[in-house]
């Protein structure tokens, strides 16, 4: 059977920062230019993950800023065993999941964010990104369980490979595979239901 799938968008090799080790070295030496380079390279990806996970632009911005500040503070703790990007995604994922677990936070994702995304045309910034079909997809993603959602966001929206996701979320590879599969099936069902 002919493969029709396009690869996840963010796995394009050209998009990655290739000189990670040099950048890490410069970051460790507290060079302002290095930190600026890191922020400029990853700001949209980190913000996008936070937005898909939290569903609120303001909260996502705050979270993304916290991610970069953590990297800035603790770059010396980065051992270089994984890619810098993986470490960055790990911090982003962990912070987002912790935020979602915080008391009084559950309703916002389930209802508030869903309602906001569904009513995308009321928000000019969201309207830019939301075609009708995209809005459906966002609703479907926002409705996923957060453990499934982070896997889908990292894999299908940001193109991390399974090993990177396993490293970022500190999960066994098999768990990543099974969660991703269940999440995709769930998404398919939700999209079908929306479009029916």
């Amino acid at each position: 059977m002919q493969r029709e799938l396009s690869p996840p968008r963010a796995v394009q090799p050209g998009e990655r920062i290739r000189d990670d080790s040099q950048l890490v070295q410069s970051l460790r030496q507290r060079e302002p230019a290095a930190f600026e380079k890191l922020v400029l390279a990853y700001q949209h990806r980190v913000f996008s993950i936070a937005l898909r996970m939290l569903g609120d632009r303001g909260e996502a911005e705050e979270m993304a800023q916290e991610v970069f500040l953590r990297v800035h503070r603790s770059i010396r703790e980065f051992r270089g065993e994984a890619r810098l990007s993986t470490w960055l995604y790990a911090i982003t994922s962990r912070l987002c999941l912790n935020r979602l677990k915080s008391p009084g936070r559950a309703r916002r994702v389930g209802e508030g964010a869903l309602a906001r995304i569904a009513d995308a045309h009321a928000n000019p910034a969201a309207a830019l990104e939301a075609s009708e079909l995209e809005a459906v997809l966002h609703r479907a993603i926002a409705g996923l369980d957060e453990q499934q959602r982070i896997v889908v966001v990292l894999r299908d929206l940001h193109g991390l490979d399974y090993e990177e996701i396993a490293a970022a979320l500190d999960l066994p590879l098999g768990t990543v595979r099974s969660r991703l599969h269940r999440a995709r099936v769930e998404l398919k069902n939700r999209v079908e239901a929306f479009l029916a």
Partner: peptide
């Protein structure tokens, strides 16, 4: 569904974020 999912545009950080 996956094709649709892979076509979702990445959200852009707000102006002045960096």
């Amino acid at each position: 569904t996956l094709v649709l999912l892979h076509g979702v545009r990445e959200a852009r950080a707000p102006a002045g974020f960096a």
